[in-house]
């Protein structure tokens, strides 16, 4: 028996929008501690790791560890039927090969009418190997406004990475003299680091911008970059991308 209720159903909608362009199908792993997902893109260059902790749900019941394979495009279509203020309930069981998403509008219930919409989606078998990713010490960790990071990636990608039309340089300096802490740019650097990444992937990661006001980028020369969007009170979406290296 699996039953989860998320008051802010829009969080799962945003999560889906942030990962569906990177990964087509993925296993959602449910345990008593929460919901996790780890999946690589088809080229094994980038990886997404999601954590939504059980404490972040209004109601969370997971009798035994369950893995549900879902097509993220189809799931996104179903979640788009939910209003942004809707409460989302996810239901599953051990015997059927479907998962049910239920959307309820609490605001309407308070008046006199109770709207319930439910969508049943077919599950799929996905052979999904997990990578063991140990915690690492990074040479540099940048915490900055997520919208600014998205803007930088978009601008650089529009100029392109071939050098055909010219070059672009953007320098981002530490800036902590801001009114709101989420507007700060904080650079923790243990050692200088210089790396090259495929902008196409970085741009895909920035689809997670609506999930968090800030983004954390962790860099070490011999490791994939980690781009992390914290989901307040619940967990995170982390993206990993291997660097381009000179051969």
């Amino acid at each position: 028996m699996l039953e989860l209720r998320l008051v802010q159903g829009s969080i799962l909608k945003k999560v889906l929008e942030s990962i569906k362009d990177l990964v087509n199908d993925a296993n959602f792993d449910f345990s008593s501690s929460g919901l996790t997902l780890q999946s690589m893109d088809s080229s094994h260059i980038a990886l997404v790791a999601l954590l939504l902790k059980s404490e972040g749900f209004e109601h969370y019941r997971c009798d035994r560890n369950t893995s549900m394979g879902m097509n993220l495009g189809n799931m996104s279509k179903m979640l788009k039927c939910a209003g942004n203020d809707d409460i989302l309930t996810i239901k599953g069981d051990d015997v059927s090969d479907t998962v049910t998403f239920m959307f309820t509008s609490d605001l309407v219930r308070e008046i006199f009418f109770y709207k319930i919409a439910d969508f049943e989606m077919k599950l799929m078998d996905i052979d999904n190997e997990h990578l063991g990713i140990p915690e690492a010490e990074y040479h540099a960790i940048v915490k900055m406004p997520s919208a600014e990071f998205a803007r930088i990636c978009k601008v650089l990608a529009s100029i392109g990475d071939t050098g055909d039309i010219g070059t672009a340089n953007i320098v981002l300096r530490q800036n902590t003299t801001v009114d709101k802490p989420e507007d700060a740019t904080v650079i923790e650097m243990n050692e200088p680091v210089s790396m090259t990444f495929a902008l196409r992937y970085m741009n895909t990661f920035t689809k997670a911008t609506p999930l968090s006001n800030t983004v954390t980028i962790s860099l070490s020369p011999d490791l994939p970059v980690v781009v992390k969007y914290k989901i307040a009170e619940m967990g995170y979406v982390r993206f990993y991308l291997t660097p381009k290296m000179e051969e």
Partner: peptide, 14 residues
């Protein structure tokens, strides 16, 4: 010439 290794080159499968 630039190359991009797969993630398995950095992390091992569980």
């Amino acid at each position: 010439y630039e190359t991009q290794l797969r993630l398995e080159a950095f992390y091992s499968f569980n």
